[in-house]
């Protein structure tokens, strides 16, 4: 498969990269590992005029452990994150999510920044050109129809990233830079909820890093992923949970997130409120799980039926919470 023509940009440093973004804006596509962009370009889902490689910008890689936070450079590979002792110890769900992305070869190339900013997916969109050619253009391909949900005026594509739900569960922030400005926003705010344009990142901005705040108390976390095969597959639905317990054994705070159930990960805030101050033994897991159900979209546009995926959001959330609580018990 040939790649469509493009001009290759190789900035020497972040300042140059930002200035290129300022110049080329929408016409440039950033790659670091390239595992998604190159794939989509081969499928003709993308044909950017410029491709800018930021993999070698020294200041975008690596995991730094600071007093109050852990900072992940945007070009840190998923493999580094999955294997990082500090991530495994402090943020198990994040390591678990990274470990379950695609396959080891992809995880060795793919970066955390790229994984977060991966495009939403749909069986009627992520197709080879030879199949798409006969189908009408859907919302995501610039048309006005939805091929997955007949008659829909909006796009039902699904955000299938593994990392974002786990990061959101840890209340992670992302650093967005553009020429002359930097902003830090919660990762959940990166998402627009619109399948056509899933991210709020500006066309002149680069995601440069992720900040995972440290929090007091004993915590446990877990990431659960529904997929058909034991590797390669994107999540068909996923659940991440983090639970903090105070010295009295009561839950001080918790965050639960459902992924791959719509165009953006969803926080199950109702569930966090419900268990605040409870002892782990008092939690009504079934009730919590039920709260996930309403947040899921379940269109029939991925490898398993939407109705089934919705039900599984419930099961996965329950299991993610259960496992996080077990971690807490073990004093992790």
């Amino acid at each position: 498969m040939r790649l469509p023509p493009f001009q290759y940009l190789e900035p020497e440093n972040i300042t140059e990269a930002l200035s290129m973004m300022d110049t080329y804006k929408d016409t440039v596509k950033i790659i670091a590992g390239g595992t998604e962009v190159i794939n989509h370009m081969k499928h003709r889902l993308l044909s950017p005029a410029f491709v800018m490689n930021i993999a070698k910008l020294g200041d975008l890689g690596g995991i730094s452990v600071l007093d109050h936070e852990i900072v992940l450079g945007a070009s840190t590979t998923l493999k580094e994150i999955a294997n990082s002792p500090v991530i495994k110890e402090k943020c198990k769900a994040i390591a678990e999510a990274a470990f379950q992305v695609a396959s080891p070869t992809i995880a060795a190339m793919g970066t955390i920044g790229g994984n977060i900013l991966q495009n939403t997916r749909c069986m009627t969109y992520n197709q080879s050109e030879i199949v798409l050619t006969g189908l009408d253009s859907c919302h995501k391909r610039g048309g006005t129809i939805c091929l997955a949900v007949k008659g829909s005026t909006r796009c039902f594509s699904v955000y299938q990233g593994d990392m974002a739900p786990a990061l959101i569960a840890f209340d992670a922030q992302c650093i967005l830079r553009k020429s002359g400005a930097t902003r830090t926003i919660p990762i959940i705010d990166l998402f627009t909820g619109n399948g056509v344009q899933p991210f709020s990142i500006g066309s002149d901005e680069i995601l440069t890093g992720i900040i995972i705040p440290k929090q007091d108390g004993t915590s446990g976390s877990a990431y659960k992923k529904l997929r058909i095969r034991g590797s390669i597959d994107f999540p068909l639905v996923s659940a991440a949970s983090v639970i903090w317990v105070g010295a009295d054994g009561k839950i001080t705070s918790s965050r639960m997130v459902i992924g791959a159930a719509g165009p953006a990960p969803r926080m199950v805030e109702e569930a966090s409120l419900a268990i605040q101050g409870q002892l782990p033994g008092e939690i009504d897991l079934e009730a919590l799980a039920g709260m996930a159900y309403g947040l899921t979209e379940g269109a029939d546009n991925l490898a398993m039926p939407g109705a089934y995926r919705r039900k599984m959001a419930r099961v996965l959330l329950k299991r993610a919470v259960q496992e996080a609580l077990e971690d807490v018990k073990r004093g992790i």
Binding site: Y8, E10, I31, G34, N39, K79, T105, M109
Partner: peptide, 24 residues
């Protein structure tokens, strides 16, 4: 498309998919 691994090569010690690896 990086989905089968037949094109795997080792770069700086890591196995990667050469079909997705930009030559530059």
């Amino acid at each position: 498309y990086g989905e089968c691994g037949a094109c795997t090569v080792i770069i700086d010690g890591e196995a990667v998919n050469s079909c997705l690896y930009p030559v530059m």
